[in-house]
Design a protein around this nucleic acid. Structure first.
Lengths: 192, 192
DNA sequence: ATCCGCATGTAACCCGTTACATGATTCT
DNA sequence: AGAATCATGTAACGGGTTACATGCGGAT
């Protein structure tokens, strides 16, 4: 039934629509307003992606509500179908892989931002815990690699570049731990 | 003369070849061995890219050196042409834009790693200084944005995600400052 | 003799970018 | 009425992924 799996972009669109029914243009504005629009989708990416989501039955354009004359012609507001909501929740539950956590960090943060009203607190904490574990593993591997090639690195720059990675992922790990503490404060604990 | 500008991927391939003449397979191995091959190029991306670089006259396959029987059939080792070296140096000199420094951080680190034997120390320091400035500007903007939307952020997660960005880019900035200090120690200063 | 790793290449497919086209709504 | 903005769409193009094809070289 399901064809190939969704693009990252499609997943993010679907997530936004799950959060708030939106039109294509509305989504564009959201991307533009978002902290420093790191990615500004083009029309040629946006509208075809929405059509694909619609064809899969993950979203549907709201039927023009105005029963009168010309019912909101041209404006297509999409909302998520039950299938779409399920697909989105499923995506949010994708495990964090320590081998690719560095490459996918931005994506994981996106997922974290989107799971606030979809997951119960304990599942959010579980996600953050997995993220922290993956980051810890990754940094450990990086340290190990650094130690292994300590001498025969061709020059100072590669070593400094490694240091950068280490510094950044450690900061990310500290953030994850802080976020866990912050969110745990509200939800004291699953009582056991 | 020059068609459209090179892909990021093409620039990185060119840079590697400038550093060390390599075959396609050799480049593949380099990517695989590099700290956790965040990106593993496929044959379908690698070989066509090398052909494009060759057609532009940026690299050229070494003539089979063995004058005897079958001169290293099948192995194509590329080396950079003067044009290629110039294009690479030019790419390394691309300014760091504070508006996109977050998106391009990985790329800038890649460039930093590659400029060790291409640039004189003072130019490397200049690059790091520009990077630091851009990161400082970017984090300042992020802080400003955070303050502006402090109240009407819909939930806790978006705020935490912003905190993550801030933490990471601050770590990057600290690294840049550290790298400047580290490299300046060797090159005391341009004497004025 | 065969199997595996080296090494290069190609074709189908998909998606994002660029650039353009088009119509509706609102402001002046 | 005319301009700017809202809003959706499409065509050409390019490049990356997947998957496959091919040939050479050394190992068992």
């Amino acid at each position: 039934m399901a064809g190939r799996q969704l693009t990252t972009f499609e997943h993010i669109l679907l997530g936004q629509i799950c959060l708030t029914p939106s039109s294509g243009y509305g989504l564009k504005r959201i991307f533009a307003a978002t902290p420093m629009g790191l990615y500004q989708p083009s029309s040629g990416a946006l509208y075809p992606a929405l059509h694909r989501l619609e064809q899969r039955g993950l979203v549907q354009a709201q039927a023009p509500p105005g029963p009168d004359s010309h019912p909101a012609r041209h404006r297509r507001v999409y909302e998520a179908t039950p299938t779409g909501l399920a697909a989105h929740a499923n995506w949010l539950r994708t495990p964090v892989d320590s081998a690719t956590v560095a490459r996918d960090l931005g994506l994981h943060l996106m997922r974290f931002a989107m799971m606030e009203y979809v997951f119960p607190p304990h599942e959010v904490l579980e996600f953050l815990q997995n993220l922290a574990t993956a980051l810890a593993q990754f940094t450990a591997q990086l340290e190990q690699y650094t130690a292994a090639v300590a001498t025969d690195l061709g020059g100072r720059h590669p070593r400094l570049a490694l240091d950068h990675g280490l510094a950044v992922y450690r900061a990310s790990l500290r953030w994850a731990e802080h976020a866990i503490a912050d969110l745990s404060a509200v939800v004291p604990a699953p009582s056991l």
